[in-house]
Design a protein around this nucleic acid. Structure first.
Lengths: 344, 344
DNA sequence: CGCCATAGGGTATACGTATACGCATAATAT
DNA sequence: ATATTATGCGTATACGTATACCCTATGGCG
């Protein structure tokens, strides 16, 4: 087929064979209404026979549309390099699938939060829009997001929807999920519930989860103890450290709600090493339902987010914005998955 | 698009400001030696000031080089859709990083093994080359790989290097790793060692691992029992089923070498449910060292592959091929990680 | 029976870059 | 001194597509 003899066929080749001009070929293949059905059919047949495919570069150059989205993963700023939260990795599947379904290619890149990514993709016309994924210091984000907005770059972010943030955001119902987790812990009789995860405005998602927990506790007549809230970024080591610090503080607690599964897993390790029995001494709930959550011992109760919906929604929202259709922030429901770590 | 102040600067803008012609700008920025140092420095300064970035589409169109690689993941043909082996997902990090380091963008796509992916990326000039990742039915692969070779498409594959395959392959030393695993099992006194994983030529990598196991056993004077080899694809369910079938067969065995961690994890579940004590009754070794391997109970002895090296090598090999430099198949060492599942 | 809208498609050109050539000037060889 | 070769850069053009604009033949309408 397209080997030595006939190099890559162009729209001119098709035009010649169909006895029309090149622009007509372009119009026919792009579905313009000012091409007769017969002509279009003929062109499409020939294109198929020649195994013709539109040259993406030429098309993008002329139309200034790439039909490509860029996915930027942010690495957690932890010392152990190159670790991406498995949760976001899992989202990758549904994102690529939705992109493919909508006829878009997907460029992917890992970024350090502090890099100049906000300028790297802005022009050079590699993509029509950007999907931003990753937990991280939200404050570090802000100025760069503002820059994107200024440049007119289209983007969508996975994160806390409740906060009045910059740009378009898609995210889970973190408050509601936190509430479910808290209610469950209260239900099994826990009253001194610790929260592991940064609850400042540097991490709006974690903040929301904590807010949900607090709401559930208050609804049960309990007052959350600020001393039982410990900062942690989303990594096993950070969870281990936070739990260890909590133990060292001597504050009594009978449950932990961790802002992510990685934190929870690290915390479980710290608790086990301290000789505590889980879930008898300390019940624990994570967040994300990463694959590893069903393999820990005890298996981890956690919050399952709608991964498939998330990917679909992110892409859909971004494309709406790109095509100048109206979009609103959208919240996805999340569901508590009860496992052994809260089974008393 | 919609940028008020100054639209995207082009090489003409820079040329004007520098008092030279547009081609000189192009030459200067691409590092041509026929531009004086002074001129180049001046051009680079102006480019930086204007925040100029080369338009990828125009550049690619003209040079017929996209500076983009495509990464194709193959999903295991298991019923549970959209699961990618975590091992390959982990490789993603090192691949993207190496791409970035070499100045290449990375397109990503998930594919069903049976799709017409081999024709999708062949022209349309989206990428300069393809990286193929995934376990799967190797026979299904072959004709499509041949097609790629015919079309002159540059690609590199992760897989079994020993087999005289089509195209360029990078992979771990599966035979050697299998040998290490076998030797370790023999060392702890196991003699009836089962292998879970397709050992036919539909799965050369698994075949190699089995070959390594057999070699280690024979070296210890043991003869592998074909009845203890059970087919399985790389998924937890498949591993569970294979182990269950093995138990049902009544064949006695005191160890399992699983062709992947997912298989091993599924098998462990089956064995535990059957009331067997691990590793006392059955020692078990997996392959891949996915994050979950250190979380199972007992923690899983497994083979750790050089993920970072793998990503680097894949990209490097592909770029060598693209740039018509000589390349040879390369084998990466793998290392046995001993954990509780073989601790007697 | 003239007039205009419309369908269908051709002509010309732009998108922004990279490269084959050509042509000076300067450096070196003869 | 002239012939030769680098050096440094400008001129012209190609890459393959999409789109603004223009033209022709119909058909409907009065």
């Amino acid at each position: 087929m397209g080997r030595q003899p006939s190099a890559k066929p162009t729209s001119f080749d098709i035009a010649y064979l169909a006895g029309v001009s090149q622009p007509t070929v372009s119009r026919a293949l792009r579905g313009s209404k000012s091409v007769s059905a017969a002509t279009r059919a003929n062109i499409e047949r020939i294109a198929r026979e020649l195994n013709y495919t539109v040259d993406k570069n030429a098309s993008s150059l002329r139309s200034q549309r790439t039909h490509t989205l860029a996915l930027l993963f942010f690495e957690d700023p932890t010392p152990d390099e190159s670790m991406i939260n498995p949760f976001f990795l899992s989202m990758l599947g549904s994102i690529t699938r939705e992109c493919a379904r909508r006829g878009y290619d997907l460029l992917i890149s890992f970024q350090q939060m502090h890099n100049d990514w906000h300028v790297a993709y802005q022009d050079s016309h590699r993509s029509d829009g950007i999907i931003l994924l990753g937990y991280g210091d939200y404050q570090l984000y802000l100025s760069k997001l503002e820059h994107l907005v200024e440049m007119g770059t289209k983007f969508v972010r996975w994160g806390s929807v409740s906060e009045e943030g910059i740009g378009l955001t898609v995210g889970s119902d973190n408050v509601g999920a936190g509430e479910q987790a808290g209610a469950h812990l209260v239900e099994i009789g826990r009253t001194k519930i610790a929260f592991l995860g940064d609850a400042s405005d540097h991490a709006p998602e974690f903040q929301d989860r904590y807010a949900g927990l607090c709401r559930a506790m208050r609804a049960a007549g309990l007052e959350p103890d600020p001393a039982l809230q410990r900062g942690a970024v989303s990594s096993e080591d950070s969870g281990y450290a936070a739990a260890a610090a909590l133990l060292a503080s001597g504050q009594p607690f009978d449950a932990i709600f961790a802002a992510s599964d990685l934190i929870a897993i690290g915390a479980m390790r710290a608790l086990s090493e301290a000789g505590l029995k889980l879930p008898h001494d300390v019940a624990i709930i994570g967040f994300d339902d990463i694959p590893a959550a069903s393999l820990t011992s005890p298996t981890l109760t956690t919050v399952m987010q709608d991964l498939k919906g998330a990917g679909t929604l992110l892409v859909d929202a971004l494309l709406s914005r790109i095509e100048d259709r109206p979009v609103e922030q959208r919240i996805l429901p999340a569901r508590l998955v009860k496992r052994q770590s809260t089974a008393v």
